[in-house]
Each structure stands twice: as structure tokens, then as C-alpha cells.
Design a binder for these strands. Structure first.
Lengths: 235, 235
DNA sequence: GCAAAAGTGTTCGTAATACACCCATGC
DNA sequence: GCATGGGTGTATTACGAACACTTTTGC
């Protein structure tokens, strides 16, 4: 059978908003764009969708090619299709966001790929409408994290409660009572306490926990409250 | 400046999943596809994105062209990009879902546009991967409706509490205690009681309510519980 | 011994749940 | 007068919020 004649074909790209957490602030991974226009300016990880790959495959490939990251949490966010968003030629971009354990890849990323982590607040200007993508991604992460345990994807396999709380406080830009926080979190049954302490953060040391993967997968879609007063936060 | 040479251009379409509520069940609006392949088979409202329009514009245009619907709730759902989803030629489809007051357009739609409402459970087979789109849309609506008052978009300007409860019970496939339901709903401050009754559903008649649009817009993004035990429902 | 962070329990108020009867009307 | 659906109140429970002191240990 024939093709759909008369219809316009358009360029299709994928852009990945990659978040990491260094224990202090949320970070964004950017790269210096390798081609015109906007060559050498900071950009999200992006690339064109190839003829034989799905969108999920494209986003995973681009992530791997530009950062070496593989097997990380990656989710489709939104598709941006403003006719003028790319000044050279109309390009539709399917945006994905990723959550990664920053420490796992920190050195490799900067050494091999010339990508750099920026604190969300201090990130440089990025190209086209990518700032809009980042804002939407931040919003989506907050929204989802208020209900589902996605933020664990930003932490290493072993982490402490203070670290976890720090992450939540940082994402939601709030402070949480540590007694209530630990109660809430432990009540989910998602965590396994280890017989080992992290002595880095304090003299006394804080117990390490790890995810109970069984419960994690089982309860991932359930609604659970990890933060107090979700309404009061800018969701 | 030049174009991005060497990159493949792809067809880009928009498909709209249109939901309505007739007081009994959730319904889906389908149309007989007007061109090959799958000509005359049931399909979502779809069309190709034109060179000069954004995705939102495209979805609104397609909705208007195929159904006459205008100014309805329309939201981007997900983008489907499997290389083989359209057998003729690779086509990326950005799916949108719409919520409409079925009565407002019922006659017009079937008379002028040869579109038809189908009960979700009794809908015919639709083309390509559109069933997947519908499933995702149902899921998204449930998810969103559990937290935000979007289901009002499915009701006429004046509606009764029993009608509203019916809608929620239908969307979540559950039963709700009417005393608790009315308490919850009225507590949001979203409804204004009218001095008028709907006598169609019962001899005594049920009071009409309308949305307090001020509060509706203000609280739309807030988290609110409209259904008991969201966890227990298949979200 | 002191500074700094970790860990832990109780009280209180609010919100969700379960539950049953009367009301208005058309026939 | 009776059948049908509409409307309302209360008692109990569970959960989230507020809140302060003790523990450990490196210096």
C-alpha cells in the first residue's frame, strides 16, 4: 500500500531532563551541544529519533550515548511541538525525565562525556524551550513524589533516614519534623534497616537502610503520603 | 541557516480520546475512519499535524473538524511512537483526552459528523494501537479524578448530587455512601445549591447544583479526596 | 565535657468511616 | 397509602500534626 501522500513529515527529537541529588541540592545534568545552532551552549541531553526505534528506545539510547547512563528511571514527560521552538527547522520534541543516583556516575560522566551537574538554582541558560521542559519536569516530580516513592531512585542502594529526609525537604522546599517523617516512612514497610551506620554525617552515625524491593514494586502505584500538607506546597 | 540534513522526518498525528457521561455509563466517541488503511473502521478522532500549528492547536482543530466540539477540556496524554504502529508508514501520535458534556452535543455529533458514542465496555475494536491509548486515558482520568475535580467537565452546568455520585461510582467502579459523599463534596466549597429541582430522576426531585467557578479554578490543582480509599481502587 | 546530629513517644485535633431514619411526591 | 429515590446527623476510629528530651561520640 502507498504512503500517506501530501502530509508533511517533521523532525522528531527526544530531550532528557536528568535529575540527581548530591545530598545537598537537586541537580540537573547538562551537556554542551555539539552542533549548530547553539553549538557549545548548554543543553539537555537530546537527539533525533531514528527511523527504526521507539520513543522509549530513543531516549534510552541518547541517555547512554551522551552520559553512559543505563537502566535508570526514565519516564515520558510531555511532547513539545511549538512550530517555532527550533529556529532552524520545525522539530517536535518528546521530553523524558530521568532520576539517577548521582554518585554512581559522577566521575564517569564528567570525564568521559563533558556533561556537568548543575544545582537547579544555579544552572545556566539552556537552549530553545528547554527551560520550560525543566520547569514541567520539576513540577511532575514533585507531584509524583508527593504520592509515590520515586525519590528513592535518586539515592544510592544504602542510605540513611536523615539523607532521605533531606532529599524530601529539598524537593519540596520545606522542613519536615523528623519524628513524624521517620514514622511515616517506616510505616510504609518499604525500608529495611541495616546493621551498619554511616559515620560521615555525624559522630554518632546514622543507620543505613535499603529498599525492600518486593514491597517497593508492589506499592509503587499506591497512594502514600510522604510529605505533610501536600496542599500547602506548590504542586 | 541550513536545515538538519541527514535526519529522517516522520509523520506526526494527533489522536483524541473523547469521554462523555450519559448518566449511566462512561462513553467514548468514535468515528468511521475516512481514508485508507482501515477505511470505514472505527477510530479515535485523529489527524495529521500541519506545518504551522502547535500540538494543542492541532488537537483542538481535529476535535472541531470531526465533531464540532469546541472549548472542551482537552489535555495531552502521552505520545505513542512505536515504529510499526501504523502499517502504511511510521507515524508518531500525540494522544489527547477530552471530557465533554455529552448532552450538549449529542444530536449534533451524530447528525452532522457520523460520530457515535459507545459505552466503554461495549465499544467496537478500534484501529492500530488505539485501544492502548484508551486504556491509558482511562487510567489517567481515574488518577486525576481521585485528586482533582475534573469529572465536573462531564456534567452539564446544572447537576444533582445523585448524578455526581453516580458518575464517581461509575468511573471508579465502586459504590459510595451517599451521606459521606455529599459531606465530602460540599465541604470543598465547589458547589452552589440552586433553588430548583430535577424531577426527572425521582418523584421528590433532587436539588440542582452548579459549580462555583471561582473556587473551582482556585482549587483545581489542590489535592482533594473525592473517593474513599483511593488505594483500594485500581489506580 | 561539650557540641552536633541521631533517635525515639505521647497527646491532641481533625477527618474519614460506618451506619439508619425521615421526607416528599407521583401514582 | 405506598413505593421510590432524596436528604440528613452522630458516634467511633484512625491518622496526621505538634512537640522535647536522651543518646552517642569525636574533638
Amino acid at each position: 500500500m502507498q504512503k500517506y501522500s501530501k502530509q508533511t513529515r517533521l523532525l522528531l527529537a527526544v530531550d532528557c531532563i536528568i535529575f540527581g541529588f548530591d545530598g545537598e541540592t537537586l541537580k540537573l545534568l547538562l551537556i554542551k551541544r555539539g552542533f549548530q545552532p547553539e553549538k557549545n551552549n548548554w543543553s539537555l541531553m537530546g537527539g533525533f529519533v531514528q527511523p527504526d526505534e521507539s520513543l522509549d528506545q530513543a531516549s534510552n539510547r541518547i541517555l547512554k550515548q551522551l552520559t553512559g547512563l543505563e537502566g535508570v528511571y526514565l519516564e515520558q514527560l510531555h511532547t513539545f511541538g511549538n512550530p517555532l521552538r527550533d529556529p532552524i527547522e520545525r522539530t517536535i520534541s518528546v521530553a523524558y525525565f530521568a532520576l539517577v543516583d548521582i554518585h554512581k556516575y559522577e566521575k564517569q560522566i564528567s570525564a568521559d562525556y563533558h556533561a556537568e551537574w548543575f544545582s537547579l538554582k544555579r544552572a545556566p541558560k539552556i537552549i530553545f524551550d528547554q527551560q520550560e521542559m525543566v520547569e514541567l519536569a520539576k513540577q511532575r516530580i514533585r507531584y509524583k513524589a508527593a504520592l509515590h516513592p520515586i525519590l528513592f531512585e535518586l539515592l544510592p542502594g544504602k542510605f540513611t533516614l536523615p539523607q532521605l529526609q533531606n532529599l524530601y525537604e529539598c524537593v519540596f522546599n520545606t522542613t519536615i519534623d523528623k519524628r513524624n517523617f521517620s514514622k511515616r516512612v517506616l510505616a510504609t514497610g518499604l525500608l529495611i534497616k541495616l546493621n551498619e551506620k554511616d559515620k560521615a554525617g555525624s559522630k554518632r552515625g546514622a543507620y543505613y537502610y535499603q529498599l525492600n524491593m518486593q514491597n517497593y514494586y508492589a506499592k509503587f502505584q499506591a497512594f502514600m503520603n510522604f510529605i505533610p500538607n501536600p496542599d500547602s506546597i506548590g504542586l
